[in-house]
């Protein structure tokens, strides 16, 4: 509607004026295309003074509807009140079209909703784990104070408490248990003397285990993968296993000299159920011409 008016306005401008004014914009043109659409070309000057050519393609669809004569009569009523004098057709300031809404009534809407809520619930659990991590207080490994170990005032005077228990990396570890252990062994407050690192964690911890111990702390959700190709890469394994859940660690044993894989790897998951699923699915999976064998890692000794 407004488009048509714009053209009429332009036609109203007398010819002489247009000639006199070199800045005058060319008159809008409308061409009827072969397929029935109309192409309207209009010109205007934008805010920064540039000439803008606007090309609009419009298709007119005539929609016929039979209505009650009274209804038809009402359609022609003059507008009044705040709308007085406004042109016909919806005004953009009061009427707009919203986003499309998919509405499909269904008989078991409730159960579908419940299932969705359940899925959402799973996410919520994950979220809560994150929150748990976030709420984890920063704890100094030297003096158990609420600051980072690097900032500890006793940094140079005290030995660190066993480095196998960083709180942020291991949210599932029982807090109290760890802290008491650390307190007694780490500070060595009872005896007062120096405790060598391999003695700090208790008597039964042998030196050999301490080496692997760094990687085997959450054996509950750790898988041992054997028959891995020599050409395997850690990232590839991570990609393979990440489909089943969040992987916290991938350890691929490599030969120190050749740099090739030794044929086994450990994959740690956040959640044991995810690990179990991965174990079930990936056992017997063909990877680089070899068939993987996946089982839960057993703690040695």
């Amino acid at each position: 509607m407004s488009k048509v008016q714009a053209r009429e306005w332009a036609e109203d401008v007398s010819d002489s004026e247009q000639i006199n004014d070199p800045e005058a914009l060319p008159a809008p043109t409308t061409v009827v295309n072969k397929d029935g659409t109309k192409t309207t070309i209009t010109y205007r000057i934008d805010d920064s003074g540039r000439r803008v050519k606007v090309t609009r393609k419009t298709r007119t669809t005539i929609h016929r509807e039979k209505v009650n004569p009274e209804v038809a009569e009402r359609r022609a009523w003059a507008k009044f009140g705040l709308e007085k004098g406004k042109p016909q057709g919806p005004q953009p300031d009061t009427t707009s079209v919203g986003e499309n809404i998919v509405f499909r009534p269904s008989r078991d809407w409730k159960s579908v909703q419940a299932a969705e809520a359940k899925d959402g619930g799973g996410k919520a659990e994950e979220k809560s784990l994150k929150e748990q991590l976030r709420d984890k207080k920063v704890k100094c490994r030297i003096c158990q104070g609420e600051h980072f170990t690097a900032r500890c005032p006793y940094k140079d005077t005290m030995a660190p408490v066993g480095d196998d228990n960083t709180p942020a990396a291991d949210p599932l570890a029982e807090d109290e248990d760890a802290s008491t252990k650390n307190a007694s062994g780490g500070l060595g407050a009872g005896s007062g003397g120096y405790v060598p690192p391999h003695m700090r964690k208790g008597a039964n911890a042998s030196a050999g285990e301490r080496m692997g111990g760094k990687f085997e702390r959450d054996d509950l959700a750790t898988l041992r993968v054997t028959n891995v190709s020599e050409m395997a890469e850690e990232q590839e394994l991570r990609d393979l296993f990440e489909r089943f859940g969040r992987v916290t660690r991938v350890f691929l044993a490599k030969d120190r000299e050749t740099g090739r894989a030794k044929g086994f790897a450990f994959i740690s998951f956040v959640d044991r159920s995810e690990a179990a699923r991965a174990c079930e699915k990936m056992d017997g999976f063909g990877y680089r011409h070899l068939i993987l064998r996946v089982e839960f890692a057993k703690r040695t000794g």
Binding site: R74, K79, F80, G81, L82, E83, K84, Q88, P90, T95
Partner: peptide
């Protein structure tokens, strides 16, 4: 305080009663 009248077919406002 405003009363509005709308056409239902296209959402055009017919007018207001103040």
């Amino acid at each position: 305080k405003v009363v509005c009248a709308w056409f239902t077919s296209n959402g055009e406002r017919l007018g207001t009663y103040s």
